[in-house]
């Protein structure tokens, strides 16, 4: 793998241009809601490659990836660094907003260039507040009910103690 160059770029997919609607599968994303909006815990996509970690058989935009005429946000490049296994490299591209992102991996050695692009649905990061509030209400409710109905249990052998 000497002299091989691998580039990983993530770009936010912001929709297809009108004239290219229906191009490949990218048109299918047109109607989907974009959950854009930066927030805490911005999701990250880890990108890595190894000698067998990438499907190099797929050609660029081979029917699944987005078209060239589609609209994207600014590119975010993942800087690859040696991973913990020999021959493994890994990097991170920060997908700062939720929504559809296109990850493009380009691989080049002398006389050969391959690339693969795929869509990733990045979910909005951060906690699910209704779930957290639910737990808080239940726990506070248990404690409140216990406090209101508390009476000294004669059956308990336990003495009051300092925790």
């Amino acid at each position: 793998m000497d002299n091989a160059k691998v580039t990983v770029v993530a770009r936010k997919y912001t929709g297809a241009k009108k004239e290219t609607a229906g191009h490949g599968s990218s048109g299918a994303y047109m109607g989907k809601e974009d959950h854009a909006g930066p927030g805490k815990g911005a999701p990250k996509e880890a990108a890595g490659h190894g000698s067998s970690g990438m499907d190099m058989g797929k050609e660029d935009n081979a029917g699944h990836g987005p078209g060239e005429a589609d609209q994207y946000g600014p590119p975010v490049t993942a800087a690859l660094a040696a991973g913990h296994e020999i021959g493994e490299y890994a990097g991170e591209a920060e997908t700062a907003e939720a929504g559809q992102w296109v990850i493009k991996v380009m691989f080049a050695v002398p006389q050969q260039e391959r690339s693969v692009a795929f869509m990733v649905d990045v979910k909005k990061g951060g906690p699910n507040w209704p779930v957290l509030w639910g737990f808080l209400v239940v726990n506070v409710g248990i404690i409140a009910i216990a406090a209101m109905t508390r009476k000294k249990s004669v059956s308990s052998l336990v003495q009051e103690e300092a925790v």
Binding site: A146, T149, R150, S155, S156, V163
Partner: peptide
């Protein structure tokens, strides 16, 4: 468990 028990625990068997 100990803290909840100390302050509001019914201490049932």
């Amino acid at each position: 468990n100990d803290v909840v028990q100390k302050f509001v625990g019914h201490k049932r068997p």
